[in-house]
Design a protein around this nucleic acid. Structure first.
Length: 160
DNA sequence: GCCAACGTTGGC
DNA sequence: GCCAACGTTGGC
């Protein structure tokens, strides 16, 4: 049963990148980027759930001020990460086959760069409101692609 | 299938 | 640069 004009719910995500390797400015410059190199099953499974138009927080990790630096959009459904088949790539996976690719990616496109970085230490101050289920502030979590609820999205955006 | 050793992530 | 936490590997 589909009503005219109805559409699937938009989901939200957070994706980490090291700015030394690929920053929000890089994403702005190229416009759209295949999010290759994810070699973690949990992160991969989240990417397989993504739909074009989903919202993405672009997060800078492993840098001076880790935090959310921009908004992006999922620009494709998941498809096989070509770097897994490339022996010259750092992300080459000799155990993956074209018949049954092990790793997936989505394309991500720049939406806007935030007026300021929302630093991790500031995000942590809202840990209670964000909830225990939020992987970014979970102790020991290193997940680089993680889901964000609509409520978390709204709260984090309000910190800009 | 256990688990020690190793490699990686990522905040600090 | 340090190191805690985690995931993966491989011997047994």
């Amino acid at each position: 049963m589909t009503t005219p004009g109805s559409r699937k719910k938009r989901h939200y995500w957070l994706m980490k990148s090291e700015p030394d390797g690929f920053s929000i400015d890089d994403l702005k410059r190229v416009g759209t980027e295949p999010w290759n190199g994810v070699r973690n099953y949990q992160a991969r499974n989240f990417m397989r759930q993504m739909q074009p138009g989903d919202g993405v927080f672009f997060y800078h990790s492993n840098c001076k001020v880790p935090g959310i630096v921009g908004l992006a959009q999922v620009a494709s459904v998941a498809y096989p990460d070509p770097t897994q088949f490339d022996p010259k790539s750092d992300y080459f996976d000799p155990k993956s086959t074209h018949e049954e690719p092990r790793w997936s990616l989505v394309d991500v496109s720049h939406e806007r760069t935030l007026k300021r970085t929302i630093p991790l230490d500031e995000i942590k101050q809202h840990a209670d409101a964000l909830g225990d289920g939020f992987a970014l502030t979970q102790r020991g979590s290193r997940l680089s692609v993680l889901p964000v609820t609509a409520a978390q999205w709204k709260l984090l955006l309000s910190l800009e």
